[in-house]
């Protein structure tokens, strides 16, 4: 899927058993990076549109390569489901787009329940830690996170307090210049209210509902992700998050 795993370092997130990987700093030659996380729900209920969802993720990550800021983007993709120990599993940790071969992304094989809170905690927690490490090495850093789900949380180790703590830290501006976190609902009409309330209570920046999981809507999702990544990366250095993230997809 990319380079030798020897180029990636592992890091723990808090004491809850969460972990992530990121490219070693001696491999990062630029001055600044936008950390991008795409967390994808692979619980049993996404089975109906598994292929389309995988295509959308591939399309989104691949489209980021066309960004004028592609050399300054590091992407982490993780899947979440109770089928994974700890609720989440990295497809790959933070790595440059040039090292990512989306054609090698494996089939999603959806099953299990939805550990949404674990996914958000892992996404934001990993971003905070990697950003702090990068900032300590003189890199400028901002971030954008997408958590894509079709349902409400029903089994997580992480608590709301843990999520709130990480999100608060992310927007304090101490290490991350700015942070945008987007909860994306797909095929989620039944739990839309829950997701909107969760987004607000946790302190995530936006909630986006893309509607039914049609090929057209999933293509829109991919375009939204790549466009938002590019926009947030262009905001790096301004001290504030991108204001170009569209209210609707």
């Amino acid at each position: 899927m990319g380079r030798l795993t020897g180029d990636m370092d592992s890091h723990l997130i808090g004491r809850g058993g969460f972990a992530f990987t990121g490219l070693r700093f001696d491999k990062l030659g630029a001055t600044e990076y936008t950390l991008v996380t795409v967390a994808v729900d692979v619980s049993g209920s996404v089975e109906l549109f598994e292929k389309e969802l995988l295509s959308a993720i591939k399309l989104a990550v691949d489209a980021c390569k066309k960004s004028p800021r592609s050399d300054n983007i590091l992407v982490r993709v993780l899947l979440f489901s109770t089928k994974f120990q700890g609720g989440v599993s990295e497809l790959h940790g933070f790595k440059p787009l040039t090292d990512i071969d989306v054609a090698a992304y494996p089939a999603l094989h959806p099953s299990g329940s939805t550990p949404l809170w674990d996914a958000v905690y892992s996404s934001i927690g990993a971003t905070n830690i990697y950003a702090e490490l990068l900032a300590n090495q003189d890199y400028g850093v901002n971030a954008i996170t997408f958590v894509i789900t079709d349902g409400a949380n029903n089994s997580s180790t992480a608590t709301m307090a843990m999520i709130k703590h990480e999100l608060k830290k992310a927007i304090s501006g101490e290490k991350l210049e700015s942070m945008i976190s987007i909860l994306v609902g797909i095929n989620s009409a039944e739990c839309r209210t829950y997701l909107e309330e969760f987004q607000k209570e946790a302190g995530m920046t936006h909630y986006k509902d893309i509607g039914d999981a049609t090929p057209r809507n999933l293509a829109k999702l991919a375009a939204f992700v790549s466009r938002s990544v590019s926009s947030q990366s262009q905001a790096l250095g301004t001290g504030v998050p991108s204001k170009q993230i569209a209210a609707t997809i």
Partner: peptide, 10 residues
């Protein structure tokens, strides 16, 4: 802090 790439610029 880090000597990779554009170390002086950073």
């Amino acid at each position: 802090k880090n000597t990779a790439g554009v170390f002086a610029k950073r």
